Computed example of a mutant assay.
Amino acid sequence: MSAVTEAGNAARSAATGNVSGLLNAAANAWNRVSTPEPVRDEMGRLLLAKGEQGAKSLSDIRRIAEQVKQERARRAVQAGAAAGAQ
């Protein structure tokens, strides 16, 4: 699972109040990437926000995950075209 997916899982768990799911997803995400403490603090604040801010955070995470997915697909097509040209 990618770090973005783990972040989405953490956000979903936070939004539903699933503390064990949040901790598990956060631990998995931490094991994948090392992030400076101020950044982690801000991510935690955003993911645990409720109401409009929480909804916006989830929406932003989904948008970023989709951008990452599209970029990976674009690179795969380019890599395939480059391999086929050789």
Rank of each mutant, 00 (worst) to 15 (best):
M1T: 12
S2P: 13
A3C: 09
A3E: 08
A3T: 12
A3F: 14
A3D: 09
V4D: 09
V4M: 13
T5K: 10
T5H: 11
G8P: 03
G8D: 01
A10P: 01
R12H: 03
R12L: 05
R12A: 06
S13I: 02
A14L: 00
A15T: 01
G17Y: 04
G17E: 03
N18W: 01
N18A: 06
S20C: 07
G21I: 02
L22E: 01
L23C: 10
L23M: 11
L23S: 14
N24W: 06
A26G: 08
N28A: 14
N28Y: 04
W30E: 14
W30G: 13
W30A: 14
W30R: 13
R32D: 04
R32W: 05
V33Q: 09
S34K: 10
S34T: 13
S34H: 11
P36R: 10
P36A: 09
E37R: 07
P38K: 04
P38S: 04
V39F: 07
E42F: 06
M43F: 12
M43S: 06
M43W: 06
M43Y: 07
G44Q: 00
R45D: 08
R45H: 12
R45P: 03
R45Q: 13
L46E: 01
L47M: 06
L48W: 00
L48N: 04
A49C: 08
K50C: 05
K50W: 03
G51E: 05
G51I: 01
E52W: 11
E52C: 07
Q53G: 11
Q53W: 10
G54Q: 02
A55D: 11
A55V: 09
A55C: 07
A55Y: 07
A55S: 10
A55F: 06
K56H: 13
K56R: 15
L58R: 09
S59M: 04
D60R: 07
D60W: 08
D60C: 05
D60M: 09
D60E: 13
I61M: 01
I61Q: 02
R62K: 06
R63I: 03
R63V: 03
R63Q: 08
I64H: 08
A65P: 05
A65Q: 09
A65Y: 02
A65T: 08
E66P: 05
E66R: 12
Q67P: 02
Q67K: 11
Q67S: 09
V68P: 03
V68E: 11
K69A: 15
K69N: 13
Q70Y: 00
E71R: 06
R72H: 05
R72L: 06
R72V: 09
R72N: 08
R72E: 11
R74C: 07
R74M: 12
R74K: 12
R74A: 13
R75I: 10
A76E: 11
A76L: 11
A76P: 06
A76W: 05
V77T: 14
V77E: 14
Q78F: 15
G80N: 15
G80V: 12
A81R: 12
A81W: 10
A82D: 15
A83T: 10
A83D: 11
A83L: 12
G84R: 14
G84L: 15
A85T: 12
Q86S: 15
